[in-house]
């Protein structure tokens, strides 16, 4: 699915250069479920943003489906991103002024999909995540778990092959956290590649592989043995 080669990301301010990622080499196969762990400030989110093409590396290569996208422009990245990648955020990031259905539809709005088909797909995905009865509600009327389910639905409604989740359970209580994790697991079983940043070792256990980052380096990679 993707391969990062000697990837470096440095932020420059006027005087200081901060290296967020240093010489990172990671390969992720199609259909994998990978968790990225590490203490705050280790570069997890930067890594996820680069994988999600929301940010570009300072040097190195990023092969996405064998295509080196490291030097692509923002609009080129945008085209690949909207076809292949779905996002889930810790703070859900739903638009307050739109209903549940409209929030989900947003992911289809910028693809050339006819309105009727959009409605069908939104309905189908809402059934799948179990929020169809909340279709007309506003995000503020939902619980955190329900909001995150909407976010998940939005991430997959466009048939994205990869989902990037940035601490998807960070704002949720244990029960709701578990619910979301199970949903991700189910999606993974259906063939979606999932890359997830998390602080929670128990949630990392849902992944087949865990990458530990420290100060911008990959320190360990561990495969989960029990299946």
């Amino acid at each position: 699915m993707l391969k990062l080669q000697d990837l470096t990301k440095a932020y420059r301010t006027d005087e200081v250069e901060t290296v967020a990622l240093n010489n990172v080499n990671i390969e992720i196969e199609t259909g994998e479920f990978v968790a990225i762990m590490g203490p705050s400030g280790c570069g997890k989110s930067t890594l996820l943003n680069i994988i999600g093409m929301l940010d570009t590396p300072s040097s190195g290569h990023y092969f996405f489906k064998d295509e080196d996208v490291a030097g692509y422009s923002e609009s080129q990245l945008g085209v690949i991103r909207k076809q292949h990648i779905g996002f889930i955020f810790q703070s859900f990031n739903l638009i307050d002024e739109l209903t549940v259905a409209e929030n989900i539809e947003l992911a289809l709005l910028y693809h050339d999909i006819p309105a009727a088909e959009r409605r069908e797909r939104v309905a189908a995905v809402m059934d799948k995540v179990g929020i169809a009865h909340r279709a007309k509600h506003m995000p503020s009327q939902l619980s955190g778990g329900q909001q995150q389910r909407v976010a998940v639905a939005r991430a997959v409604v466009g048939n994205q092959s990869m989902i990037l989740a940035d601490e998807p359970t960070g704002n949720l209580d244990t029960a709701h956290g578990q619910e979301v994790m199970e949903m991700l697991q189910k999606l993974n079983e259906e063939g979606t590649t999932i890359v997830m940043v998390t602080h929670s070792p128990s949630h990392a256990d849902y992944a087949r592989r865990t990458i530990n980052l420290l100060d911008g380096h990959v320190v360990t990679e561990s495969m989960r043995s029990k299946i």
Partner: peptide, 10 residues
Amino acid sequence: GIRKVMGASV
């Protein structure tokens, strides 16, 4: 931001 992540162009 959300719209852009969802694929909205400038």
